Simulated assay, not measured.
Amino acid sequence: MMETITGGEPGPVVAEASGKRSVYFLVPAGSAEGKAWPDGAVVLNAAPGRVSYVPVPALHGRTWPVSWYFPPTAPGRFVHTLLLLSTATAILN
């Protein structure tokens, strides 16, 4: 859905091939806070008393179990937070 709306380039997305098989959408810092995310979506934020991390693979070479589903295409290019929220809500509700 996001791929179609963005012409095939939704912004940087990382996929994990083991464990929970998580998918990480890289958004601008702080842009996910204060939004009503649907059940099933987990927001990872740095905050006092809280530790979060996102595994980021190298751009080239072997990085299993994480890899780029959509690699970054330009400095400062992120997944659009409201588009991600709309897509997650449509899929997870």
Rank of each mutant, 00 (worst) to 15 (best):
G8H: 01
G8Y: 00
P10S: 02
P10V: 04
G11R: 05
G11M: 08
P12S: 05
P12Y: 01
P12Q: 02
P12M: 02
P12G: 04
V13N: 03
V13W: 00
V14W: 06
V14E: 06
V14G: 06
A15R: 15
E16R: 05
E16V: 10
E16N: 09
S18H: 04
K20Y: 10
K20G: 10
K20F: 13
R21F: 14
R21A: 13
S22R: 05
S22N: 07
S22F: 04
S22I: 03
F25K: 01
L26H: 01
V27L: 09
V27Q: 05
V27N: 07
V27I: 12
V27H: 07
P28W: 09
A29P: 04
G30Q: 08
G30L: 08
S31K: 09
S31N: 11
S31T: 12
A32M: 08
E33C: 09
G34N: 12
G34L: 10
K35E: 11
K35D: 08
K35H: 14
A36R: 14
W37Y: 04
W37C: 02
D39V: 11
A41L: 04
A41C: 03
V42G: 08
V43C: 14
V43I: 15
L44Q: 03
N45D: 07
N45M: 04
N45V: 05
N45L: 05
A46C: 07
A46F: 08
A47G: 07
P48G: 11
P48V: 14
R50V: 11
R50H: 10
R50T: 09
V51T: 10
V51A: 05
S52E: 01
S52M: 00
Y53H: 02
Y53I: 00
Y53G: 00
V54S: 03
V54G: 00
P55R: 00
P55E: 03
V56N: 02
V56F: 00
P57G: 05
P57K: 04
P57A: 07
A58E: 02
L59Q: 13
L59K: 10
L59C: 12
L59M: 13
L59T: 13
G61D: 14
G61R: 10
G61I: 12
R62L: 08
T63Y: 05
W64H: 13
V66C: 14
W68S: 00
W68K: 02
Y69V: 08
Y69Q: 08
Y69S: 07
F70S: 08
F70W: 09
P71R: 13
P71K: 13
P72S: 01
T73M: 10
T73Q: 13
T73P: 05
A74R: 14
P75F: 04
P75C: 06
G76P: 01
R77V: 11
F78S: 00
V79C: 01
V79W: 03
H80W: 09
H80P: 07
T81W: 02
L82E: 11
L82W: 09
L82N: 11
L82D: 15
L82S: 12
L83E: 08
L83V: 11
L83Y: 05
S86C: 11
S86D: 15
S86G: 15
T87A: 15
T87R: 11
T87S: 13
T87V: 14
A88E: 11
T89Q: 15
A90Y: 11
I91G: 00
I91H: 03
I91T: 05
L92A: 03
N93E: 06
